[in-house]
Amino acid sequence: MKKIIVQCLSIILFAALFPNSSKASFDVSETWNADLRSQVVITCDEYSRLCIDLCNNAKSCYLKNSTCRDCISTGVKMTYFFSAFGKEISGAKEEVSQYEFVEFLSNESFIAIGPNNIYNQFDAAQTNALLEKFKSMCPNNAPSPVAFFKIENKNLIVKNAKYITCGSAIYRLEVKSILLD
């Protein structure tokens, strides 16, 4: 009995000291709350960097998401924007550490765009066309990715694509035409 307790305590101690050593899973999504404020929701199954640093150790929290000027439109920029996913923007093959992502979220103005965002004027509300494009940007085929852009002065541009959360993994977004060799 003592042995088991000691083993359990050391596992707990170990886990507490090195929270990232186990493959902690987390989920990031973009939504609107009851007050119709745009938000990024972070939830973590195990203790992961994201929740420790951004949620003050809680298992979930909300971050304020930016809005973007002229995004509810069929202007030139938005006409191009969603078609660029998977063609001009894709996720890099290597994962990015949660530290880097936390740094980004804490220090930069960002906007999170998910597959069900309200700015999509181009697909019928019932279709999954945009979701398919999002999924194609994740190397791991995650079900519900969220793209993160740096945003200045509420101006959303493709060039400022930074990261994409693909389930419990985060990848850098690359802006370049993905052409056939």
């Binding site: 609107w32 009851a34 309200i118 004027q121």
Partner: peptide, 14 residues
């Protein structure tokens, strides 16, 4: 039209 489409999506999300 534009704002209507966005509101509809918002309704779905909510």
């Amino acid at each position: 039209m534009d704002v209507g489409r966005s509101l509809y999506r918002l309704g779905k999300i909510r």
